[in-house]
Design a protein around this nucleic acid. Structure first.
Length: 594
RNA sequence: GUCUCCGUAGCUCAGCAGGAUAGAGCACCAGAUUCCUAAUCUGGGGGCCGUGGGUUCGAAUCCCGCCGGGGACACCA
């Protein structure tokens, strides 16, 4: 049997309907849904089968529902099936069938909930922070959402490659090179260049470099100081002349160091990508020209002048002839420039090369996690991928809204200048990787969220991180007290001892884990996992609390070894499902609190 | 002006590819509890699901208009 008892029942229902209506084609049943009814008193499951099939069968749904209910009632899995409302069938499962979820979970372990392998290969790109400095909290949500989404898709049976695109070409890394050059000069003895007076402060040194070389130093961060030091140690004064070759060397060196830092930040967050793709390497390999040629071959490129943007026109706007891509053929609002008026490639063109590179590696589904400020970029990228793949490979983008960090009820401003620049490393150090990851997933990713530094470390019901971890720790504490019985030993327990509504409720919740995985993966909404775990923890805490009042409901009953064994099986299975869910989220379960 | 996301309880948010009487936590009210199975528990009040239409057996959910809010809008990355 499949892990998912809802899918199992759906199969039985479709089969039963097929016997009642032998002439109906299979696709008539495609909209049949089996789900837990909102109202618990309606039973364990409900199906809309009679409603959605009624029209094709030319039968009034209530009548069909009655027939279906009768057929289902004779199944061994089903205790009771009753037609209801406009054509639903409510199903109450045999308790034995429901309870069988417990040994199933124990047998499958944390693999419980895994979906059947899905065809195709998914490429999921996320983070892709520019290699111009350490990661800050703004990058954090995308990193967590992307990583959890990757975990979720894998769990659901997809073959997922986690990719990081390094923006190591273009103006920003050139600015990084200049800033590194400045820090390099500072690391040398002053008389090596004589650009500033002895004792000149940082602003003066910066101004001297800007004046001497006619550049603007955009990156002033102190994180470049060690880069300058290392350059001075490795090359002495050999790089004093900022020639093209020297700047290239410095750029590569700085990018490498920044990527090391970013990888360290990601590792601290528990994020590991499978592949790092370099923009500069793609350009060197000629991917840009290749992509352009592909588009040109389809007559999708032309020289043209774009209209001024609607609304407020920029003051310096002037018509310019550029190389344009016919994005409008693929649903975009305007055609998009591939080359600037000076003939150099746009970022968009490079990104097309990036996507061509993905397609060439055989991915059949492309996914991105982007910040919401990139929302306007989605259409054109989808247009490009559609053009390059003959509309066969879909590109989907999950947008992550901004996170406001709050402490003591006050927003924590992100300002490099004011020195309140919150790096990802700072955040992780303050509250821990697991709290960061879990909390980032307690909101839908396209909704703005507040990250309350005080709340995430609070040990109370209000803090879902704590609440879920606490449930696991409690379960583990019970199992330890019982001598940590092996799963194989618990599988044989006589589960008929589990009859309290709270116990059965917990089993029902666990039973829904596979369909939560399936649904969340299909919707690309990893936050659903966090909500599920919160609910599961709630069910477990409820049972625990009943045991506080009524000692007969406690898990360990010295006088009743069989009942104890059954309950330990339940507790153990619950802990397995929590671990399974936390595993998807990349959060480490705790054995005990503190 | 165009595109896009959003509008659900006093607050913060869920609502699972259209389903039955719309949920949770906080806050509020009422009880219980000081027990290491610790870091509370049980119950209760509270909603024109922004608004007006449409689609259909059925809409918080899908479509259109309006109102209100966030974000993005030539050659930046």
């Amino acid at each position: 049997m499949n892990d998912d008892i809802f899918a199992h029942l759906r199969g039985l229902i479709v089969a039963a309907l097929g016997r009642i209506l032998p002439d109906l084609p299979a696709e008539a049943f495609s909209k049949v849904v089996v789900e837990p009814p909102r109202e618990a008193s309606h039973g364990d499951m409900a199906t809309n089968a009679a409603l959605v099939v009624g029209k094709a069968a030319k039968l009034p749904p209530p009548k069909l529902a009655a027939q279906l209910a009768e057929a289902l009632a004779s199944l061994p899995e089903v205790a009771e099936a009753t037609p209801a409302g406009p054509g639903f069938v409510n199903i109450r499962l045999e308790e034995g069938f429901l309870r069988a979820v417990v040994p199933l979970v124990l047998r499958r372990g944390e693999a419980f909930g895994e979906g059947a392998p899905k065809p195709g290969r998914v490429n999921l790109e996320y983070v892709s922070a520019n290699p111009t400095g350490p990661m800050h909290v703004g990058h954090c949500r995308g990193a967590v959402v992307g990583d959890a989404l990757a975990g979720l898709l894998s769990k659901a049976g997809f073959d997922v490659t986690k990719e990081y695109y390094i923006n190591d070409a273009g103006a920003q890394v050139q600015a990084l090179a200049w800033a590194s050059f400045w820090r390099y000069l500072e690391a040398l003895p002053r008389d090596a260049h004589g650009l500033w007076e002895e004792g000149a402060d940082e602003a003066a040194r910066k101004a001297a470099v800007e004046a001497r070389y006619g550049v603007q130093l955009q990156y002033g961060g102190h994180y470049l100081l060690p880069v300058g030091q290392a350059l001075a140690e490795a090359h002495g004064s050999a790089l004093l002349e900022p020639s093209e070759a020297n700047l290239l060397l410095i750029r590569r060196f700085a990018v490498e160091r920044m990527m090391e830092e970013i990888r360290a930040d990601l590792a601290a967050l528990g994020v590991r990508h499978d592949v790092f793709v370099s923009e500069a390497a793609l350009i060197e390999a000629g991917k840009l020209e290749e992509a352009e040629a592909r588009l040109a071959a389809q007559n999708l490129i032309y020289r043209g002048v774009l209209e001024p943007p609607k609304g407020k026109t920029p003051e310096d706007w002037e018509p310019r002839e550029q190389t344009l891509f016919r994005a409008t053929d693929f649903g975009d609002e305007v055609d998009r420039p591939l080359r600037k008026s000076d003939g150099s490639g746009t970022y968009f063109a490079n990104d097309i090369a990036n996507h061509l590179h993905k397609l060439e590696r055989g991915f059949t589904q492309l996914l991105h996690v982007w910040g919401a400020d990139h929302g306007g970029y989605v259409r054109r990228m989808q247009a490009a991928v559609a053009a390059l793949s003959s509309r066969e490979v879909p590109l989907d983008v999950v947008l992550a809204q901004i996170v406001h960090v709050v402490k003591d009820g006050q927003p924590v401003r992100m300002s490099k200048r004011a020195g309140t620049y919150v790096t990802l490393a700072d955040l992780i150090e303050e509250v821990g990787k697991d709290a960061v990851r879990f909390t980032m997933l307690t909101r839908k990713s396209d909704a703005q969220m507040e990250f309350d530094l005080d709340l995430v470390v609070q040990q109370s019901r209000d803090n879902p991180v704590f609440y879920v971890q606490y449930a696991h720790a409690r379960a583990r504490s019970v199992l330890r007290a019982a001598g940590d019985p092996a799963a194989s030993e618990l599988e044989g327990a006589d589960l008929s001892h589990l009859s309290d509504p709270a116990e059965l409720g917990l089993i029902r919740r666990m039973a829904s884990w596979p369909r939560v995985v399936e649904g969340a993966a299909a919707a690309r909404e990893p936050h659903r996992i966090a909500f599920f775990l919160n609910d599961l923890a709630g069910d477990f805490h409820l049972l625990w609390n009943k045991g506080k009042d009524d000692t007969a409901l406690r898990f360990i009953q010295d006088a009743a070894p069989e009942a104890t064994k059954a309950r330990l099986a339940l507790v153990s299975a619950m802990a397995v499902v929590i671990r399974s869910g936390l595993g998807v989220m990349g959060v480490t379960p705790v054995e005990e609190m503190r």
